[in-house]
Nucleic acid binder design. Structure first.
Lengths: 343, 343
DNA sequence: CTGTTAGCGCATTCAT
DNA sequence: ATGAATGCGCTAACAG
């Protein structure tokens, strides 16, 4: 499509060679049932005539598009881009393309996008639910209609019938905070994201339990749940938070790399030395943390691998027999703490 | 597709209502030629039965997919992601979806991806050529076959028949360097990217001519063309560059934000004060520069807008009559210098 | 080994 | 206002 001029099709080749369309189709498919010499003739003619198969017609006929739909909450979050890269790599190696859409942090758009996927453009879907996504009826609907789905990252409610790729956010946070505690810190601040988001809830739990486990007091004042969905405001939110504190933290556990960086920036601005006066840990490990001065210690999340695994699970589903019920798989990937200069 | 279970189709609705497929089709299209009451019956039944149109069948029949193919050199470059966001926004508002692929900085993959687009999945293509793309025969081929194409960013050779969205790299660089000169700097270093890339060539030209125009000597030693395509190595390349210098620069013009940040990091590491001892300017203005301490002065490139404009031009082409020759459009967007703490 | 035929699901032209 | 028939380009079942 998108071709204003008439395209060469199987029929044209068939007519020129005085053979049937079916034979041409088979020949191009390298079907062993067609004579070698015919196959060669066909290939040569196809090349001469500049034949290019019509993917749409193929899809309609075969019932599959070889496209994976990917739905992420936003583009401007390196984590999601990394996951997409992982998906893309695996998909490409298995003859699939990916169609990425953004739900722009909105449940409404998430549903809209899924409907658009449901129209048959994609063979399956990889999805990271938005923070607004409270129930999963829309996903169950799709699954019941036979659409293979893999979820990753922010799964508030398990969806039976969909595979999941996740990390143990609570454990990762626990370890990060424990690391700070073992370094001798006692007034540890927490910078989280929107409360509705499962991953942030879990990271908060990990923080709480690490403190409790080590008998370190929890100061409500030292806890911030950023509400901004916008880069611009996060900045101010964090600055105001630190400016308003009565207790001076000796360490900060931030729930994303970006929060970690903004924290460092703010601390430097108000004259703190990192890590001497305040240690900082981020979450993600997505590049920028390595450039900052000082470099940011953080929980390394295997983003790229999450994508690969998600794609692997989805493609496995796509190859499953139609009438066997899918057995749900949950892959939990390991995180690790990457120590750099900020601690 | 991707639906293992049987889907409801027009025929099913038709049968249930004892009317023809054509009428159902027209009704759902809100064609005024069908009786209001019939239309309502059809809509109701479609809803009850959970009808979802098959996009593939529609595309085959209509000859258009309403998908725009986007081909960028790499995903992990915020600039390209910003452009994609811009494309996506405009496209979405005009009922198009986008299919993003990466050529991974390779001419070979660029061609492969274009072939995959040519198979009819997309109505048109927005492309940023790789640094390896020396000639544009493959693009001319596609255009001759009737595929609408819009190029952006790195256009080494003009392609007649394709629209272009660019900035004036040379002018932007000239102004940035001139800015440094007017601040009194005389030993200005240049950190560029791979020499084969047109945008870097142009930014180098701007640098050269600003120096010449103001009678500032050009020290070859102060010029670095980074060869790394990999984030990991850029770091070392820049560190080694500054460590090896005999002349101590009082300013640095970096061709990307990332180079600018790495430059600042390196300078801080070797004990320089920014901007007092060395001023630094980056190019792009894509976020991280605002977080770093000090924040990075840079040439602001309208990335998002580039995407919007590219999509606008493409969709305009898609709506052009088939037999009128396309008149090539070149949109040159304005850049501006955003002054921050590093200068 | 090759040809004929019948779909895939929808849009559309031509009748009525 | 509605229906019947044809085509979009390709695949696959069946026949020979």
């Amino acid at each position: 499509m998108g071709f204003k001029k008439r395209r060469v099709k199987l029929e044209d080749i068939a007519r020129r060679l005085n053979i049937s369309i079916a034979t041409v189709s088979r020949a191009l498919d390298e079907n062993p049932r067609v004579k070698k010499s015919t196959q060669e003739k066909v290939f040569k003619m196809a090349k001469v005539m500049g034949y290019m198969p019509n993917q749409i017609a193929k899809s309609l006929s075969s019932g599959k598009t070889n496209i994976i739909g990917v739905l992420i909450p936003r583009y401007d979050e390196p984590f999601f881009i990394e996951v997409c890269r992982g998906i893309d790599q695996y998909a490409r190696n298995h003859n699939y393309k990916i169609l990425i859409s953004s739900s722009r942090n909105s449940y409404k758009f998430e549903k809209e996008n899924l409907i658009s996927f449901e129209k048959g453009l994609v063979d399956g879907i990889i999805l990271s639910p938005t923070h607004e996504t409270e129930n999963v009826a829309h996903l169950n609907d799709l699954i019941n209609k036979g659409m293979p789905i893999v979820l990753f990252d922010n799964i508030r409610e398990e969806v039976s019938g969909a595979d999941h790729v996740i990390i143990n956010d609570e454990k990762a946070s626990f370890e990060a905070v424990e690391f700070l505690i073992k370094k001798g810190n006692k007034k540890i601040a927490f910078i989280g994201g929107i409360k509705q988001k499962k991953v942030f809830q879990d990271r908060y739990k990990g923080y709480i339990s690490a403190l409790a486990h080590h008998n370190i007091p929890l100061y409500d004042e030292l806890v911030l749940h950023c509400n901004s969905l916008d880069r611009e405001f996060e900045d101010k939110e964090i600055l105001n938070f630190f400016r308003g504190l009565n207790i001076s933290p000796d360490a900060v556990f931030a729930c994303t790399d970006n929060y970690g960086l903004l924290t460092m920036k703010t601390l430097l601005k108000i004259g703190k030395k990192i890590p001497d006066e305040v240690a900082v840990i981020g979450f993600g490990d997505l590049g920028p943390g390595e450039i900052f001065v000082p470099t940011l210690t953080c929980v390394s999340q295997p983003s790229f691998e999450m994508g690969q695994k998600a794609a692997e699970l989805l493609i496995k589903q796509l190859n499953e027999s139609e009438d066997i019920d899918h057995i749900k798989t949950i892959i939990k990937l390991e995180t690790k703490l990457t120590e750099r200069e900020s601690t």
